[in-house]
């Protein structure tokens, strides 16, 4: 069986500018935290895309199971009243 010769996998989150939230940008391979951060910087922010980077070991992320999709997500499909669209927007508020 072929062994994986790659280093550990890290997920990369980039904040575009101060105040906005960190968005998932992709992943990098690295053997430690510093290398993960530097590799993420070199791959995802070379063209001025970011002002802050988070890197997270991919195996630290707890993901939902696709098999649970009907239980997790389907019940939300027919509950339009959960959207705050039945309110009248106060004058002057750009978004709620």
């Amino acid at each position: 069986m072929a062994t994986d010769t790659q280093l550990d996998l890290w997920e990369v989150f980039i904040q575009g500018r101060n105040g906005s939230h960190h968005m998932h940008a992709g992943s990098v391979h690295a053997s430690d935290k510093k290398m993960a951060l530097q590799n993420a910087r070199d791959i995802y922010t070379r063209r001025g895309e970011g002002s802050s980077i988070w890197v997270v070991p991919a195996n630290s992320i707890v993901a939902s199971n696709p098999d649970d999709a009907d239980m997790f997500f389907d019940p939300a499909d027919d509950k339009v009243y959960r959207h705050p669209t039945f309110y009248v927007m106060p004058e002057g508020a750009k978004q709620i």
Partner: peptide, 11 residues
């Protein structure tokens, strides 16, 4: 030595 480092050096 690997893709990420290739990019780091050329960067």
């Amino acid at each position: 030595p690997f893709l990420e480092e290739d990019l780091a050096l050329t960067n």
